[in-house]
Design a protein around this nucleic acid. Sequence first.
DNA 1: AAAAAAT
Length: 586
Amino acid sequence: MGLYLFIAAFGNYDNKDGNWAGAPRDAAYNSFGGRSDRSKSAFFNDRSAGSRGRYERGGFAGGGNSRWVEDPREDDWSKPTAPNERLEHELFSGSNTGINFEKYDDIPVEATGSFLLSMWIYVTSHCKRTDRYTRPTPVQKHAIPIIKSKRDLMACAQTGSGKTAAFLLPVLSQIYTEGPGDALQNGRYGRRKQYPISLVLAPTRELALQIYDEARKFAYRSRVRPCVVYGGADIGQQIRELERGCHLLVATPGRLVDMMERGKIGLEYCNYLVLDEADRMLDMGFEPQIRRIVEQDTMPPKGIRQTMMFSATFPKEIQILARDFLEDYIFLAVGRVGSTSENITQKVVWVEESDKRSFLLDLLNATGKDSLTLVFVETKKGADALENFLYHEGYACTSIHGDRSQRDREEALHQFRSGRCPILVATAVAARGLDICNVKHVINFDLPSDIEEYVHRIGRTGRVGNLGLATSFFNDKNSNITKDLLDILLEAKQEVPSWLESLAYEHQHKSNTRGRSKRFSGGFGARDYRQTPGGSGSYSGNRAGRNTGGHGGSRGFGGGFGGNFYSNDGYGGNYSHSGSVDWWGN
DNA sequence: AAAAAAT
């Protein structure tokens, strides 16, 4: 019976206190019929609701591909299309160790939302222990109802928090309910130019691909066709995929601009815009492309479209972007991934540069053969060198960095995910966003100079309730991160080596300005600046810097916040404390 | 300083 409550929650969101409320009133929620079938779910058995239509030989020059012709009587997007066993298998039986379909037989399916919910269970069960999907992550719990209530959203959250589902589910749900609108005429399959209803922008190719993969799962048996475009891959093939129909487009900015200029994509009917990892995109210099896409083209203006921004931090640049792109938005801050997680044991060891390799071998030998280890290095050259070294030492390993071809990158990731190469040597490209299940051990062979990068890296392990270990090699080259690292370790209640403590103490006294972490000068901001007029925080943690006060430094927004801000509802797995709402009922 | 991303 619990599922019904989940769906009820989708339909009714009380904006004032952020609670679920009431029972579903929307008739659309019941249009799937309330069958409680014993085999699989009623949803998967409901062949009568399969799409009516036919394939027709394409009449285009150089075409010849068959295309789907919609039966005008069946343009109800809230109804599922016919099942496709081959596709179902492709989407849902991938790398996971076996979803227990039988387990869902007893679940009563009573509302339209089950369409999405079936997908939800499929997808979430991939990365999690079987009992994990029983609860939404904090960002899901809060973002989904906000998006469902058609409000713009600025969310401080990171991937790995279940963020992808947090925007895909409600966006798809709304597309299912409302149908394609004008885009039905313009988003036709076979059209040379496609008009997606929803656009998701992501900073890296792999992240775009990953979001696309999730979208395909959630969109299974719907009329929504997801596509992905990113650089480094054959553009011709991507164009052909687009021409088969595109309602939800996931893209990296550069390739999308390219596609727009080639006249392959029109954004006139793009009612949902998602900017994922917005801070990262700005860091990477994507702002001109993003503005080109959002402001200098045909996309509906803010207020007409619904816009959702996700960002790990909330510095000045992101605030400006939020002001420009979002209309009367809801600000949502949930904790950060990684550091506050009690699931990750963080170790810092002093290792001289020359000892790193042999120390690494010791660590690898101490690790179980079939558990995944992710080794971070600082440079692309370093990644190649280390991979080579490990390879010659007889370890099954691979590497990923920006100088490798896109094909190699994806292959490496696949080899790693599948366990064929349980050791992956990576640069920063793999630090953020990538959701790799079962990474047992993250090793910072080279520590990053940026604490946020560190947090992202260790967040690759200990995901969704699993236990993880993060080991970092530290030596005098890493003094710049000493203070921030100490803060993180203390915050996460980790063991702190005494040498690190004294080093941090020395460092702080040597340089009183540089020693101040930018986290506390607002860089890692997760506070809605609109509540603090003038930009100088009314609440200033005792460690907070005031250095960005009126001038608007390059990062941050003045003021600050105390260290335990994040402990409230942070990620890290223990979702059982995430509030009084019981998503699944009893 | 290095990394990422359109060709």
